[in-house]
């Protein structure tokens, strides 16, 4: 006879994307590449996160953050973008909301750039190519603080 233990429990773990209250965390994705924005969005929505906005450059990202505020929990921010780069947008978002949680996502991993971003208030820095596990871990870690 099969007991309950024979069936692996696949639903026990709460998805990363849900806050302790059970509501999805709200994410703004800022990236000029349609491919990267899609990739990040797919990773996040598969874990229950709610991608509430996407913006294709730093300036649009800043505007979108101000529109969404305070109904946004975290921003993923590309660095090399037209109109306004991600570092400038990060600084302006922090000026507007000093508690903003911004994670940089860039293919460039140069140490001084990473340092500059963290000093400007970024909570984490992910170097591409993106790995699903790495992205989810870093974001969950930043949101848990």
């Amino acid at each position: 006879m099969k007991t309950k233990e024979d069936f692996p429990s696949i639903n026990e773990r709460k998805p990363d994307g849900l806050s302790p209250e059970g509501t999805p965390y709200r994410i703004l994705v800022v990236d000029d590449s349609m491919f990267v924005a899609k990739q990040i969005t797919q990773i996040l929505t598969s874990e229950g996160y709610d991608v509430v906005g996407q913006a294709a450059d730093g300036l649009l990202g800043l505007e979108r953050y101000k529109e969404l505020y305070p109904n946004v929990d975290l921003v993923t921010m590309d660095i090399t973008m037209p109109n306004m780069d991600g570092l400038t947008a990060l600084q302006k978002i922090i000026d507007f909301d000093k508690n903003a949680k911004v994670i940089m996502i860039s293919a460039l991993g140069k140490q001084d750039l990473v340092k500059q971003a963290l000093l400007a208030g970024a909570k984490n820095y992910i170097v591409k190519p993106l790995d699903r596990k790495k992205v989810l871990e870093r974001i969950a870690h930043v949101l848990s603080k």
């Binding site: 349609m34 491919f35 293919a107 460039l108 170097v127």
Partner: peptide
Amino acid sequence: DDLVKATITELANMITAQAVT
């Protein structure tokens, strides 16, 4: 289409950025 172009562009970007790093 635009997605294919964005994907190839991103591949080029990732390789170059890692080399520049």
